[in-house]
């Protein structure tokens, strides 16, 4: 074997752990670069596997929903006149409870599915604007005069703080999934490379170079200042842009 192992070969090796190909084994034994890439891929695979496949909705939501339903149903009971059709009313009441319980279960399921799809999917094309505007590391602005506009000297509400916290958490949770998606998309791109027009291939490469350089700069800055939320957000945006570009290339061949 003369050249390095392809991403596809390394990906297969990382998944299976063994190779039937004598050439691949020989090459790996003598090529530190390919071995490093394989080790990195295996590490990524393990970390992706370690992420939860699904996220359960909090179980403690149900008692509150049930209590709420119970309260409402009992409120209806008080208003209901005691008549000869009590048996029918009881049956209706039971049916209503079943319906409400069903509705609550459906809501719970929807919530669970939404959380799971948000965390694991992150592929929606719709605009999701992060309102996590306030960077906790931001130094306050210095007003030069007393006139309007007013300077905001600190994160102005607990709500904003909560939004910042939640976006940060999502970023951490999405990190490994993004790496995995990126690796797969890059491998796909290489497989489709021969079917691309040369100018398209060149355009993709130059765009990827620009994004990779930006990511490298942001990573280096983030390493120097790991608590800087703006850097983390910019890094996340650049990586998202890279994944979007790679997805775009799927239609280019």
């Amino acid at each position: 074997m003369t050249g390095h192992l392809t991403d596809d070969q390394l990906g297969t090796l990382a998944r299976s752990g063994v190779s039937d190909n004598e050439g691949e084994r020989t090459h790996l034994a003598s090529c530190a670069s390919c071995l490093d890439r394989l080790v990195e891929l295996e590490r990524l695979r393990r970390s992706v596997q370690a992420t939860p496949r699904r996220i359960e909705a909090p179980l403690d939501l149900w008692p509150a929903i049930r209590a709420d339903i119970q309260t409402k149903v009992e409120g209806q009971d008080v208003d209901r006149p005691s008549t000869a059709v009590n048996s029918f009313n009881n049956w209706t009441q039971r049916w209503n409870r079943v319906r409400l319980a069903g509705l609550a279960a459906a809501l719970l399921l929807l919530t669970s599915a939404s959380i799971a799809s948000f965390v694991l999917g992150r592929r929606s094309g719709r605009t999701v604007v992060s309102a996590a505007a306030n960077d906790t590391s931001v130094v306050t602005s210095e007003p030069a005069s007393d006139a309007e506009p007013t300077a905001i000297t600190s994160p102005d509400s607990g709500n904003d703080m909560a939004r910042t916290a939640s976006s940060g958490m999502s970023e951490v949770m999405l990190d490994d999934a993004d790496i995995h998606a990126e690796q797969e998309l890059l491998a796909d791109l290489e497989m489709r490379r021969s079917s691309l027009r040369p100018e398209t291939s060149s355009e993709i490469d130059s765009s990827l170079t620009v994004i990779n350089e930006a990511i490298a700069e942001l990573r280096a800055a983030s390493a120097r200042d790991p608590k800087n939320a703006t850097l983390r957000q910019l890094l996340a945006a650049s990586r998202e842009r890279k994944i979007e570009l790679l997805r775009q290339t799927e239609n280019a061949s």
């Binding site: 960077d135 590391s137 130094v139 602005s141 210095e142 030069a144 005069s145 006139a147 309007e148 506009p149």
Partner: peptide, 23 residues
């Protein structure tokens, strides 16, 4: 060119931030 506020520096030699409200 909109406000008369002076942006704060993020560090000694680089970076700026400005938070303000209009109306």
């Amino acid at each position: 060119n909109i406000t008369s506020l002076k942006p704060a520096s993020l560090s000694a030699d680089r970076g700026q931030t400005l938070a303000f409200r209009l109306g």
